[in-house]
């Protein structure tokens, strides 16, 4: 992705790194999650006490750990892109595998969280908080699954552009989580 110094620097949309269609997808996803989170914050105003009570049932530690897992996984994916750009296939594959493995770890912890909710009889309909909780984290978890599959697919024949596209999807999943986690799990927790 480095440019020769004689080329004039690209401007506007031409300068966008990676595949344009992946950016279209990323922006679309961010709009959906952003709207969902704003709606969550808006509905929260109607029942602050109920939301705080509902939130106290969440596994904050597990979710905090999951943030670090995803951020680290993103780091591995970003290094996989660099490895693919220097045509180091073995290293690219190893880094992608590491990123995907951390994705699986994320899902495992998320699953424990869901299982605990299920055991406590908490469903979509229990409280508006949990409608948003299941919708937003569930939708995110589906993207984690998709991301793991995508990382696996690009690892089969790891060329730099495809690895970059896969990693971009993975970073989007990461980005959504760092916004979703504090809003759903942490806001108002100390009160």
């Amino acid at each position: 992705m480095s440019r020769t110094p004689t080329e004039p620097p690209a401007r506007g949309i031409e300068a966008l790194p990676g595949d344009l269609m992946m950016w279209v997808l990323i922006v679309s996803e961010l709009l959906v999650f952003g709207a969902g989170l704003l709606a969550f914050m808006g509905v929260r105003l109607t029942d602050p006490a109920g939301f705080a009570e509902a939130q106290s049932h969440l596994d904050r530690t597990g979710a905090g750990l999951n943030t670090m897992i995803l951020v680290t996984s993103g780091w591995l994916a970003a290094r996989a892109v660099a490895a693919a750009e220097s045509a180091d296939t073995a290293r690219t594959r190893a880094l992608l595998a590491g990123a995907a493995a951390l994705g699986v770890a994320f899902l495992w912890i998320k699953w424990l969280d869901y299982a605990a909710k299920g055991a406590a009889g908490i469903t979509f309909e229990t409280h508006p908080f949990f409608t948003f909780y299941y919708l937003l984290t569930g939708f995110h978890a589906v993207h984690v699954v998709a991301g793991i599959v995508i990382l696996g697919l690009v690892a089969i024949r790891p060329r730099a552009p495809t690895v970059e596209v896969g990693a971009m999807f993975w970073h989007m999943v990461d980005l959504v989580w760092v916004l979703l986690f504090p809003i759903i799990y942490l806001l108002g927790a100390g009160a």
Partner: peptide, 18 residues
Amino acid sequence: MPGYWQWIGSIFSTLEVV
């Protein structure tokens, strides 16, 4: 249909303008 469709429907169909 379950109530969560109200949010899925609202958010995604708003993006149909795009």
